[in-house]
C-alpha cells in the first residue's frame, strides 16, 4: 500500500468511532500492541526531544526501504507513534520525504492533543524525515559507486 492509502485507511477507521472513549481505546490498544524497541536502541541519541514523555526512534535500511522502530514510556503516545510507524515505515526515502501527513488533522488527533504533545509528535515526524534524507544520500552514493 502507498503511504496515502494507509493514511486513508486510518481515517476511515477513525470515522467509525462515536466518541473520544472509542478513539482512545483504539489508540491505547495500538500502543499496547506495538512491540517497542530493544533496550540497546533506547539510547540518548535515539530520544526525540520535545516530548513530555520519552520517545525513542530507531531507523535502518532494508533494500531501498527505510524501516522505523520506536517506543515510548507513555502508552497513548506509543499508540500515536505506532500510527506514524504504520504510515511511514517500509517506504523509500523519496516517498517519505514527499509525504503530507494529512491523517493527523483528518482524524481530529491534532485538536485532541495539546500543543506540547503535538510538538512532540511533530518532532518525531521531523526526525523520521531527517533519517529519510540521510538514507537518500546514502543510497545515491551507493548507486554512483
Amino acid at each position: 500500500m502507498s503511504i496515502n492509502e494507509i493514511q486513508d485507511e486510518i481515517i476511515e477507521t477513525f470515522e467509525l468511532f462515536d466518541d473520544w472513549e472509542e478513539k482512545y481505546e483504539y489508540i491505547i490498544d495500538l500502543g499496547k500492541k506495538l512491540a517497542g524497541l530493544d533496550d540497546q536502541y533506547k539510547t540518548e541519541d535515539n530520544i526525540i526531544k520535545g516530548c513530555q514523555s520519552v520517545v525513542w526512534l530507531h531507523a535502518h535500511l532494508e533494500g531501498d526501504k527505510v524501516i522505523f522502530e520506536a517506543d515510548s514510556q507513555a502508552i497513548i503516545v506509543k499508540g500515536l507513534v505506532s500510527m506514524l510507524l504504520k504510515v511511514l515505515s517500509g517506504h523509500t526515502p523519496d516517498e517519505i520525504l514527499n509525504t503530507d501527513l494529512y491523517f493527523i488533522e483528518k482524524t481530529g488527533l491534532s485538536s485532541h492533543l495539546a500543543q506540547t504533545r503535538s510538538n512532540g509528535l511533530a518532532s518525531m515526524v521531523k526526525q523520521m524525515k531527517a533519517y529519510a534524507l540521510g538514507y537518500k544520500t546514502l543510497l545515491e552514493k551507493q548507486n554512483q559507486s
Binding site: Y24, Q52, S53, Q73, I75, I76, V77, H112, L113
Partner: peptide, 21 residues
C-alpha cells in the same frame, strides 16, 4: 504502571485540567 502524560490526556478528555510532567 501509568505514565503521568497518559493520566493528563484521559483527564483532559473529561474536561479536567491538571498539570502533568
Amino acid at each position: 504502571n501509568i505514565h503521568p502524560q497518559d493520566i493528563g490526556i484521559i483527564l483532559d478528555q473529561q474536561g479536567i485540567a491538571v498539570r502533568t510532567g
